Amino acid sequence: MLGWVVTFLVVALIAGLLGFGGIAGASIEIAKIIFFIAIILFLVSAVISIFRGRSRV
């Protein structure tokens, strides 16, 4: 998922250098959304793993 973020950031940088401001802005917004979704999923996964703990046999 973070690979997509890097891809959109690279697209935004290239589009910004070539003068395509609309595409650059849209790519940055998409990258931000995907980044925050990835962070939220990571935090939810960490909290669930803390509460589940290790099972005793």
Rank of each mutant, 00 (worst) to 15 (best):
V10P: 01
A15F: 04
L43Y: 13
I34L: 07
I48H: 14
I50F: 15
L18Y: 08
V10Y: 10
F35K: 03
G16Y: 07
I50D: 12
I37K: 11
A12Q: 00
F35S: 11
L13Q: 09
S55V: 05
I28F: 08
T7M: 12
A46Y: 15
F42H: 14
L17G: 07
I50K: 14
S49I: 09
F42N: 14
A38S: 13
S55Q: 11
A15K: 01
K32T: 12
I33N: 10
S27V: 01
S27W: 02
V10C: 00
V10M: 07
I40E: 12
M1C: 09
T7Q: 13
T7L: 15
V44T: 11
G19R: 04
I33V: 10
W4F: 11
G16N: 05
I40G: 07
M1P: 05
S27P: 00
E29D: 11
I30Q: 09
F20E: 06
V47E: 09
F20R: 11
V11P: 01
A15W: 01
V5P: 06
R54P: 05
A15M: 04
W4Y: 13
V47C: 11
A24C: 03
I14L: 11
L18V: 09
S45G: 15
I34P: 03
G16E: 02
G3C: 01
V44N: 10
G25S: 06
R54A: 10
G21P: 01
I23K: 10
R52A: 15
A38Y: 00
F51D: 09
V57Y: 02
A46T: 08
V57C: 04
S55L: 09
F35M: 11
L43Q: 11
L13S: 07
V44I: 15
K32H: 09
L9W: 05
A38C: 05
I23T: 09
I28R: 03
I23L: 09
L9F: 08
